[in-house]
Design a protein around this nucleic acid. Structure first.
Length: 453
RNA sequence: GUGAUUGUAGCUCAGCUGGUUAGAGCGCUGGAUUGUGGUUCCAGAGGUCGCCGGUUCGAAACCGGUCUUUCACCCCA
């Protein structure tokens, strides 16, 4: 036990059954992405630290996995810096690469680097793992998959609408009940302007983001702690407490934010998105939620978040519009909007609710019992025809006790077992056993294909 | 990063205030049944009690450290 190998904290192995379930999720998401005209790309697991650092805030920098330089990296490093024992400064000396933290920043890098080969608007999806040196807990891992869809090079709000359609399609296909929360960063900026605390926008959004969790009083406490005047906090109250239908909320905001140019722009954008959505057949409820802020600093327009309604877990999908992201890498005026599906959390939700369709987890459909070399060769021929007909079939490789071979079929949940011994071979047939009913019949290969297929 | 929490057979767990050969259920292997699994019966294998160190005549149990699990904060998918 003690000597057994282990895997690093916050990482997981996936068994065949788990992989079948995960692939069902990935395949579903992928097929929806393709349906909307998005194309796949992949980027390396590691990026230069210079492209990663500073993009996720100070916290994010700490959560980046850094890769030690190759060779005698300590000898090449500046001794005086190492002697200071300052981890942040020393990192630059001994590490120049890191594991990607999300897919959006590498994508921005990709767009800038390949700008001359890309046709805009560029619609891409990307399904790859990302790594964060976070402390693991429920629904939180150090290695997890993101499924990103983004479109860059288009300002049209049609894209926002399309992303919501995609969310609706994906969760309909997965059979998960969700709520889409929608907000707009411009409205948040407008609010900060109106109450005269424009420079505290980040503190304000972080605080009101917690409303659900800690309640109104504590949010106000936190706001005061961040240095907001009582007057500003008072002005904020009607906004934090905003309720009613989406249309009602928008009406209220219109009067409150009428003096803020950005705020008005934000309201217009939201109104347009809701108006477009109203003309479409969308099953999922979309709710305007002003407390939705999301930590990432680069959102400039719409902000999305998707919550599962039947399971208590963090958000399972999130995203938004970012006008300036490629600007960091030197390409100006390219606006993008995208969302990210958290495959691992979706997996946890699906598991808890047991939502997998039976077909999604079948492996082998038919097992041939091995009675010996001559019989095995006879079975092999039949297997070719079955496989050509699209049936997943296998032959037990060793001619061991039948009991053992049957137990193997049972454990792998193979629904049919075929037996071809001397009698069957003489007739040019096989005995087919249905493992759920226990019935057996003598049939030809063609008949088998009909029964199983 | 802060504060808690967990770790005993492949799995889920028991093991009282430290005292001889550490237990159960399930699973696994073999047999009853040498061309029939999933049910039943019988037998068997499997554990330096997470790891390192300390206290003690004696530690799975007490203490320290470390790794791991889970949870809250922070942040986030």
């Amino acid at each position: 036990m003690a000597q057994k190998p282990a895997i690093p904290k916050g990482t997981r192995d996936f068994s065949p059954v788990e992989m079948a379930k995960r692939n069902f999720i990935f395949d579903t998401i992928k097929s929806v992405f393709l349906k909307y005209g998005y194309q796949p790309i992949e980027t390396p697991a590691m990026e230069n630290l210079s492209t990663l650092m500073g993009k996720y805030g100070e916290e994010g920098d700490k959560l980046l996995f850094k890769i030690l330089n190759s060779g005698d990296f300590l000898a090449k490093a500046d001794e005086s810096l190492l002697a200071q024992k300052d981890s942040v400064k020393s990192t630059i000396q001994i590490s120049e690469k890191g594991l990607r933290y999300d897919l959006t920043v590498p994508f921005a890098r990709f767009v800038v680097q390949h700008q001359n080969e890309i046709t805009f608007p560029f619609k891409r999806y990307q399904i790859q793992p990302v790594w964060r040196a976070d402390r693991p807990q429920k629904g939180r891992y150090r290695e997890f998959y993101q499924c990103d869809v983004d479109v860059v090079g288009s300002d049209s709000l049609m894209n926002e609408v399309e992303l919501i359609q995609i969310v609706d399609d994906v969760y309909k296909a997965l059979n998960i009940n969700v709520l889409v929360k929608l907000n707009n960063r411009k409205i948040l900026t407008g609010i900060a302007e109106i109450i005269g605390e424009a420079d505290k926008i980040v503190d304000i959004t972080v605080a009101i983001d917690k409303l659900d969790k800690i309640g109104l009083d504590k949010v106000n406490d936190e706001l005061a702690q961040k240095g907001l005047s009582d007057e500003a906090i008072n002005k904020l109250q009607p906004i934090i407490n905003l309720s009613g239908s989406n249309a009602e909320k928008i009406e209220t905001l219109k009067t409150v934010l009428s003096d803020s140019e950005v705020g008005v722009k934000g309201i217009e954008e939201l109104e347009t998105v809701f108006a477009y959505l109203a003309t479409l057949d969308i099953k999922t409820e979309v709710e305007l939620d002003l407390t939705l802020a999301r930590g990432l600093n680069y959102y400039t327009g719409a902000i999305f978040e998707v919550k599962a309604l039947d399971v208590q877990i963090g958000s399972i999908t999130g995203g938004g519009r970012y006008d300036d992201l490629t600007g960091i890498f030197g390409l100006k005026n390219v606006s993008g909007v995208g969302i990210s599906f958290g495959a691992d959390r979706i997996y946890d939700v699906m598991n808890q609710l047991d939502l997998y369709p039976k077909e999604s987890i079948v492996s082998t459909q038919l097992l041939f019992i091995n009675f010996g070399e001559k019989e095995a060769l006879y079975s092999l021929k039949a297997l070719q025809s079955l496989r050509n007909a699209g049936i997943k079939a296998e032959l037990y490789p060793d001619s061991v006790k039948m009991k053992k071979q049957m137990a193997y079929a049972n454990k792998k949940e193979i629904s049919f077992v075929a037996m071809a011994g001397e009698n069957e071979m003489n007739e040019g047939k096989v005995t087919l056993k249905n493992m759920t009913t226990g019935e057996q019949q003598l049939v030809t290969v063609e008949e088998m294909i009909k029964i199983i297929g």
